[in-house]
């Protein structure tokens, strides 16, 4: 019994010693943020860890909002150095950062991500417009009989929405409201579709709150199925059910081109080239934000930024493009590469 007790107390001592050791500075980069940027940032981090003398950065997938919250909590080794985001930082977040002492933030755009609406390879090719997407997925839509009033979404099949579409029940698998992909989809596809109705567009000026609610609220009668954050699961379900459509990032279409195909949106097919030159309408920029105060205290941040902004990384032939990231045009790449080199902080709007 005595032996056990001494053993246990020795172990407890060891743990507490270790804990004290941990209080001192961190020697690896800590990155948090968007699950959309995660597959790209991790590749860079891994390469960085293998090719330099620095430790491999750790990357947590917390979502864009969660990442910025952690990032803005303060300066010091216990706070992350970089946060990934699938949208630009909001002015409220920027202010929160400033109030917590995170005064200088470097914004880096890394490329674009297309959001695709896809269905199974065996299903008929869908040629959608953003207006179709709005009418099929919004909670309230303009009365099909005409007039300027909104009624609960009556459409049951795609043919009801647009007579050129197949007579197929509307089933769309997509991300839940916590996802950045969902935010971008409602903004880029549904809101743009809603704007084609003159009276809704006019509402933006008169009643902005109502306008947002109309454009951004997804129907809840079972036609839109929240399929969780796991895009692989959506791909598998689409493969099983040819009548369903799914919404996810382009990289999943790219990796699963033998099982699913992307629907045309406004007459443009979601291909690498079409997203890269901006023709495909539903695409968004991806970012990461760097805490300038940590550069120099946490080893390797400047080198990581340099590795990320190398042409071999984010250029058109870089390894990130192989993972499905759509590179920025050359001028934009040059601009951000320069920002990184000079460590120019952004300004809060």
């Amino acid at each position: 019994m005595k032996k056990v007790l001494t053993l246990l107390s020795a172990a407890a001592l060891l743990i507490s010693l270790n804990a004290i050791d941990a209080m001192s500075a961190r020697d690896y980069i800590s990155i948090v943020g968007s699950s959309t940027v995660y597959p790209f940032a991790t590749v860079v981090a891994e390469q960085f860890g293998k090719t330099t003398k620095f430790k491999t950065p750790t990357i947590e997938s917390t979502g864009s909002g969660g990442g910025l919250k952690l990032f803005c909590a303060g300066v010091g080794a216990e706070h992350p150095d970089i946060t990934n985001a699938s949208r630009a930082i909001k002015s409220s977040e920027c202010k929160a950062c400033f109030e917590n002492g995170v005064k200088e933030i470097i914004e880096v755009k890394i490329g674009y991500d297309g959001i695709v609406v896809a269905n199974a390879k065996s299903a008929p090719m869908m040629k959608l417009t953003r207006k179709d997407l709005f009418l099929a997925l919004a909670k309230d839509v303009p009365d099909p009989k005409g007039g300027e009033n909104l009624i609960p979404n009556p459409y049951q099949t795609w043919k009801d929405v647009n007579s050129s579409l197949p007579n197929q029940k509307i089933t769309v698998l997509g991300p839940p409201p916590t996802s950045g992909t969902r935010d971008a989809f409602v903004e880029l596809a549904m809101e743009a579709g809603a704007k084609e109705f003159g009276f809704i567009k006019a509402m933006k000026k008169t009643d902005k709150k109502r306008y947002k609610a109309v454009c951004h609220t997804v129907r809840e009668d079972g036609a839109y199925v929240e399929a969780g954050e796991n895009d692989n699961l959506i791909v598998q379900k689409l493969d099983k059910d040819p009548t369903a459509l799914g919404i996810f990032g382009f990289s999943f279409l790219d990796q699963n081109a033998d099982k699913i195909k992307g629907a045309f949106v406004d007459g443009v097919e979601p291909t690498f080239d079409n997203i890269a030159d901006g023709q495909y309408p539903v695409s968004r920029p991806l970012f990461f934000y760097v805490k300038k105060a940590h550069i120099g205290t946490i080893p390797g941040i400047a080198e990581y930024l340099k590795a990320f902004s190398a042409e071999a990384t984010w250029g058109p032939d870089g390894y990130l493009s192989e993972k499905g990231l759509i590179p920025m045009p050359e001028a934009e790449r040059m601009k951000f590469a320069k920002d990184i080199q000079m460590l120019i902080p952004m300004e809060c709007k």
Partner: peptide, 17 residues
């Protein structure tokens, strides 16, 4: 507590990520 993360290096102690 941040253990859902991409970690390449094999941890060698109680405080390694």
């Amino acid at each position: 507590i941040g253990m859902v993360a991409f970690i390449v290096d094999i941890p060698g102690g109680l405080t390694d990520p």
